[in-house]
Write a protein that binds this DNA or RNA. Sequence first.
DNA 1: CCTGAATATTTCATATTGTCAAGTAAATCG
DNA 2: CGATTTACTTGACAATATGAAATATTCAGG
Lengths: 142, 142
Amino acid sequence: MATRTDPLTLEVVELIGTVVARYHEEYERAAAEHALTGAQARVLGLLSLEPLPMRKIALTLKCEPSNITGIVDRLEARELVERRPDPADRRVKLAAATAKGARTARELRDALDFAREPLAGLSEAERTTLRDLLRRMLGEEA
Amino acid sequence: MATRTDPLTLEVVELIGTVVARYHEEYERAAAEHALTGAQARVLGLLSLEPLPMRKIALTLKCEPSNITGIVDRLEARELVERRPDPADRRVKLAAATAKGARTARELRDALDFAREPLAGLSEAERTTLRDLLRRMLGEEA
DNA sequence: CCTGAATATTTCATATTGTCAAGTAAATCG
DNA sequence: CGATTTACTTGACAATATGAAATATTCAGG
């Protein structure tokens, strides 16, 4: 239990807190530039990879399915996303990014400079070390 | 610009995204155990360090001052925080954690095991390396 | 000192996000 | 076939966020 309070560990925890805060700021800023909220940007980002059932979006974002309905409604109203029937199961609605939505998602990703520009200051060997330490910190499943 | 798209950098960026998601989950979970929202927990955490003018809280959390009014209202209703006049400027109200609020903030901090337990799996030398890499990634000001 | 601009906070209107409970439609199981 | 489960939507409500307007106070210039 020595690691729970030793100064080094506390400092790393605090640095991670700073990383989290910085990441969020950047994410919200990038989303706002496209007149999207953070939640909308997250859903659009997911759907730009592949169409997903509403249920799956809720599971991924760990929120209630009823919440996703509204977010997709707003994205759909702006023609960034569309609902399609699932041919295999008529209960399911697949949400999919439109061409316009995919374009917006790409621009959003490009705008997300956080951790990309700062990482340029690290050598390849250092980035490898950082990757390995983060992987181990996040555990096996990551 | 090679670092903007090379696989190693993208993987590190993705790992950081995972860290951010995990941190948030844990933070919300810890707050919920005390029947607090994330925003309330953040404000209470700030005020447990020192009393602050409402304006300062808004600046720190990068949101509108009118937003803070409601959050402090709810914390005050639960006697976790109190508003005091600022003797130096009668326009200002200082929000301060009560004894009960300070206790809650401490429990909250202790419950925030994220990154503390996982870090136990890293040796001291590795934690030092991680700290230095994070510091450099965050830049001089961190 | 007095007036006008600036500052700190609150209030109000409004949008988004989140939860939960209830409702509808479709699939699945016995 | 009938009962249960699953997927999604709807409605009610709380919290959070923004922006504009209102109030009180401070401050700066004349």
